[in-house]
């Protein structure tokens, strides 16, 4: 029993950012969604740090990103390497965050 609990806990840590089951992830390759995401990327000044095409100070085009992690970073913000990305959950709906995610995935390196 204890062994199963420990195993489940470890599993939860490793998929900690998988807040959305695979089936809930929309089609991130939909061109309409990517275009809408680009608009949001500019409106919400993601481009301030990432550049208009993702090649800014925090360059997204050289990164292999996971869509759920991107969603979570946009929603809840992110801290890393001493830098801070603000959270956007209160100003963007889940649907909008997925659109922005679609755009980010379209400019990043796809996972191999």
């Amino acid at each position: 029993m204890m062994y199963k609990l420990v195993l489940m806990t470890i599993a939860c840590i490793f998929v900690g950012d998988a807040a959305y089951p695979q089936e809930d992830v929309p089609n991130l390759k939909d061109p309409t969604m990517i275009a809408a995401g680009h608009d949001l990327f500019l409106q919400k000044q993601c481009s301030r740090c990432h550049g208009e095409g993702g090649k800014g100070g925090i360059n997204l085009t050289r990164r292999a990103l996971d869509p759920r992690s991107v969603f979570q970073a946009i929603a809840d913000g992110r801290m890393g390497s001493g830098l801070r990305m603000p959270a956007s959950r209160d100003v963007l709906t889940d649907e909008e965050i997925w659109k922005a995610t679609a755009y980010v995935m379209s400019i990043s390196q796809q996972p191999k």
Partner: peptide, 9 residues
Amino acid sequence: GTGHIGASD
């Protein structure tokens, strides 16, 4: 989190 700047960056 969005600057009141009238620009995207």
